[in-house]
């Protein structure tokens, strides 16, 4: 199975390659990708050099251009696709049907992957993207159980890529408007969920609070664990009860499910975290390299023991082993 790893900077990309990544995914430093954070991502020269470096080591670079263009601003996205193709990207990860049509038309030899942001969660939707735009791989939305993935793979003609570690979104990727509601900006259109420019932390009276767009979303004792400042992980009071209304601040860790994902026909395993440091990338990639190496052997996959790196310092297998339906 191919191990697809995140890189928000050239240093993180080198760390991923050193740690055993088969492919690294990254994006340009603008609104064309869904991790458009301050100080993050690649300039044009940095991406060209990164692709050359990866290819020299026999590895791949996948370029995420997975936001939805604003009307009238399409040239920024078209330039990103053209530049990624010119630099030799092994695949471009897209979500918007208009961009997929553009890429298929203008860059017919370019391999295209369907982003998780497209939320193609069934065989009919995946086959539509494959038929209409020549998509070769789909990044599966994090709403499917292992059994559902096993049922989908025989019905589609494209490769599948499944998230195995990292932050989780609410179960409507590419369609979530929570960030827009609070800040006017979203990962879908602006490439940034809960933009840092709208986040304010404050410490007073032994408490630390986090506000997003002026809304108080967390208040914890100083020194207690703190999740990302997103509305979906916010702690609210409703009907007299205080808790995480949308979802708990935990991260995905599907390391023990990797053999089952392999049996379900999954082609590639994806690690989330382009916003994280090279230390995170190196540690998680090394752990999953060992997990992948154990596939097919008699020994069980090694426990990844990565919970301390996770949001909320706790892990879940998410929808892969869901029991709530």
């Amino acid at each position: 199975m191919e191990l697809v790893c995140p890189a928000g900077t050239p240093a993180a990309l080198r760390a991923a390659l050193e740690a055993g990544a088969d492919a690294v995914y990254c994006g340009f430093a603008d609104e064309t990708n869904a991790r458009n954070f301050p100080g993050l991502n690649f300039s044009r020269p940095e991406l060209a050099a990164a692709i050359d470096l990866a290819h020299a080591r026999g590895k791949k670079v996948l370029v995420a251009i997975n936001t939805f263009p604003r009307a009238g601003a399409e040239p920024m996205w078209h330039r990103a696709i053209a530049d990624a193709a010119r630099f030799g990207a092994d695949a471009i990860i897209l979500a918007d049907p208009g961009l997929l049509a553009h890429a298929a038309d203008r860059h017919p030899d370019q391999r295209l992957h369907l982003s998780v942001q497209a939320a193609a969660a069934n065989a009919d939707a995946i086959n539509l993207y494959a038929r209409e735009f020549g998509v070769r791989r789909v990044v599966l939305p994090r709403v499917l159980s292992v059994e559902e993935i096993a049922a989908i793979t025989p019905e589609i003609s494209v490769e599948t890529e499944a998230f195995v570690f990292g932050g989780l979104c609410v179960m409507a990727e590419g369609r979530c408007s929570l960030s827009s509601y609070a800040t006017g900006q979203s990962p879908n259109m602006n490439g940034v969920c809960s933009p840092a420019s709208h986040v304010a932390y404050d410490s007073a009276g032994g408490q630390q609070s986090a506000r997003l767009g002026g809304y108080l979303i967390h208040q914890r004792p100083q020194g207690a664990t703190m999740p990302y400042p997103t509305l979906c992980k916010g702690c609210f009071t409703s009907r007299g009860e205080t808790g995480h209304i949308f979802e708990d601040p935990v991260s995905l860790d599907a390391s023990r499910l990797v053999p089952a994902l392999a049996r379900a026909g999954v082609t590639a395993l994806k690690i989330e975290g382009r916003q994280r440091s090279r230390a995170y990338v190196a540690e998680v990639v090394r752990a999953f390299r060992a997990v992948v190496a154990a596939i097919g052997s008699d020994t069980p996959p090694p426990a990844a023991a990565l919970a301390r790196l996770a949001e909320g310092q706790a892990a879940t297998t998410g929808a892969y082993a869901k029991t709530w339906r």
Binding site: P10, G39, A196, A200, Y201, S203, Q208, M226
Partner: peptide, 23 residues
């Protein structure tokens, strides 16, 4: 996440500095 680091003020500037120094 673990509460060992806390930040206040311009969150964007802190994030940019963290990413720039990491790279």
């Amino acid at each position: 996440f673990s509460g060992r680091l806390t930040i206040s003020g311009d969150t964007s500037a802190v994030l940019a500095l963290r990413n720039a120094l990491d790279d």
